[in-house]
Design a protein around this nucleic acid. Sequence first.
DNA 1: ATGGTTTAGTTTATATATGAAATATCTGAC
DNA 2: GTCAGATATTTCATATATAAACTAAACCAT
Lengths: 152, 152
Amino acid sequence: MADARDTVRLSLRLLTTSRLIEREVDALMRARFDSTIARFDFLSALDRHGALTLGEVSQYLLVSNGNVTQLRTRLSADGLIETEADENDRRIQRVRLTKKGESVFKHMAKAHAACVDALLRDLTQADKQKLTRLLDAAKTSLRRKLTKGATP
Amino acid sequence: MADARDTVRLSLRLLTTSRLIEREVDALMRARFDSTIARFDFLSALDRHGALTLGEVSQYLLVSNGNVTQLRTRLSADGLIETEADENDRRIQRVRLTKKGESVFKHMAKAHAACVDALLRDLTQADKQKLTRLLDAAKTSLRRKLTKGATP
DNA sequence: ATGGTTTAGTTTATATATGAAATATCTGAC
DNA sequence: GTCAGATATTTCATATATAAACTAAACCAT
């Protein structure tokens, strides 16, 4: 059936579009903030959700634990985040934005918004809404399949 | 204006959806073919376009020249691709699939198609088509902006 | 022809990412 | 109480990715 071919085409469009945006945002973060998209995403998760355990960061960013450990080390060294111990469970560490981290993130977020807005300016507002809605549906499908086994 | 916020939301959906698929495909390539998504993409470009210079591979995959050099080394060592010199221009090297590479890629492509098809099975055919069309529009907008400067 | 520029690709240093194994801590059945 | 598993995080080895500096070859204006 041609159905599967269409789905492959869809997934390729998705990857390409996503990668083009990622590259541009990464270039922005490097040029203007001496940072990277990975660090921006990390800070973004903390800005959105407040204090998080490292495991939660890993889940939100869809990256491995080891990766989170590395990023945490760098962001801490830069003074953008800080760690606090859990009162009851000594395995758990929570990270959060420092004052400096909040301030830096605000500037980053503003530049990021301007960047993606410029990149997708040719899309009408209606198309953006449709696209967001359809991507939500795709995400839902994905999440459901991923809990079970998708690889046959 | 809330327009920029909507665009940020859209770009986040895009990245998340794309990352979920990439992770699953990467896991598939590791589990079944002792490979990775990066190598699959490389082989995929050669399968689609035939013999390519390393620079062309870099453009198709949206990755740097250095990255292509590294991947080429591994794929050559595995006997999946081979290099030939250009007759007229000694700077240029073309890579192409070997017989083994073609055969391995066929199996990979089949598994890949089954994987993404399963992941996105909950979407109707109509939704997939709409999504592909909208992503095409997004890609066009991106390409146009990227030739100019998107970072204000 | 020759020297300056562009083009193709490699190398180097480093950041990002993974899976697997290890460590440390907690939890629950007994 | 204790000990077998579960959970949170780190460490290790390695793959993937970048930017910047570099090499080699081609092009091109003089």
